[in-house]
């Protein structure tokens, strides 16, 4: 087996990892700051894909249709996230985890039905623009050009989030709120508004991830449930609330999955869960998490 094929497999794993990162980063952010385990996160991701389809469908005669639909879908989801936070999520901040899970799982059921009502049960397809329709050749090995775009988006979101949390005043406030809500509140900063903003940001990223997923295959009901477990695995491995951890864990999961397909196809999915279980046993707070969050 030559190096170019190993490289191709690595790139496949990286693209899978970046897709997982896009989903899991919002999940991790919301949990890290708000202590809310949002089981419906992947459903927002799916809605992002459907909303992207709608925008694309309206503009499909134009070359920029997909490129404009992706940010529009993310912004739409962020607005939707604001409403959900104010109407529902805000009411369970002080409840215990099972109640939060019950609410967010109920949201999965309601949102899935909403999808059925709005978009029906037929699969939706977004056609790729010519720029990302054909393969690119890296060291002589073909690679889906759209996944180059996925990898770039993943890196951009990771960099953007890092910059936002580390370098901006709003980011500093969010990080401070993770450790002491009371102190932030005592400084006169309205915590509810911070939470609404963080939830909207998390859902924005979920919407962006869904929109980016749209042209990958067909958009269909049930996709959210297929991906949510892997997203949780990523967050557990990386450590709840750790952006760096989520990024590293996404790449690990993507690469483990990709290379196990090459060498041990039957065990690809099992390996991910074995890694997750091992991390939970050895380091319950994840690779980059803190013990207080475990």
């Amino acid at each position: 087996m030559d190096a170019s094929l190993i490289f191709a497999q690595f790139m496949s794993g990286l693209s899978r990892g970046m897709m997982l990162f896009l989903i899991a980063s919002g999940l991790s952010l919301i949990f890290g700051v708000m202590n809310i385990l949002n089981f419906a996160h992947a459903t927002f991701w799916l809605i992002g894909a459907y909303v992207c389809y709608t925008f694309w469908h309206l503009m499909q005669g134009y070359g920029f249709a997909l490129w404009l639909s992706i940010p529009l879908a993310a912004v739409t989801l962020a607005a939707f996230g604001c409403i959900i936070e104010v109407v529902l999520i805000r009411r369970v901040y002080n409840r215990n985890l099972p109640e939060q899970l019950l609410l967010t799982y109920a949201m999965v059921l309601v949102l899935d039905d909403l999808i059925k009502i709005v978009w029906g049960v037929s699969d939706k397809l977004i056609e790729r623009p010519p720029l990302v329709a054909d393969p690119v050749f890296i060291f002589g090995t073909p690679f889906d050009s759209y996944f180059i775009f996925v990898i770039l988006i993943g890196i951009a979101v990771a960099g953007g989030l890092w910059w936002f949390l580390k370098k901006t005043r709003y980011g500093h406030i969010i990080r401070a709120a993770v450790f002491s809500r009371e102190m932030v509140s005592a400084l006169g900063i309205p915590i509810p508004r911070i939470y609404t903003g963080v939830f909207a940001l998390g859902i924005f990223i979920a919407g962006l991830a869904g929109a980016v997923q749209g042209p990958v295959g067909s958009i269909t009901l049930g996709m959210d449930m297929a991906i949510v477990i892997q997203a949780f695995c990523v967050v557990v491995i990386g450590g709840f609330g750790s952006l760096l951890g989520t990024f590293v864990a996404s790449v690990i999961v993507g690469e483990v999955y990709s290379f196990s397909i090459l060498f041990w196809p039957e065990g690809a999915l099992v390996l991910i869960f074995i890694v997750t279980a091992l991390i939970l046993i050895i380091r319950p707070w994840g690779l980059f998490g803190t013990p207080s969050r475990a």
Binding site: M1, L5, A8, Q9, M11, S12, G13, S15, R16, M19, T141, P142, F143, D144, F147, Q213, V216, G217, G222, M223, A226, I227, Y257, S258, I261, L262, P265, E266, A268, L269
Partner: peptide, 21 residues
């Protein structure tokens, strides 16, 4: 070789490159 993607797979890239290999 035999490849067995799970039902509901959303990303076949790793399978595609593995098959091509």
């Amino acid at each position: 070789k035999e490849f067995w993607p799970r039902l509901g797979e959303t990303q076949f890239t790793s399978y595609i490159t593995a098959i091509m290999a």
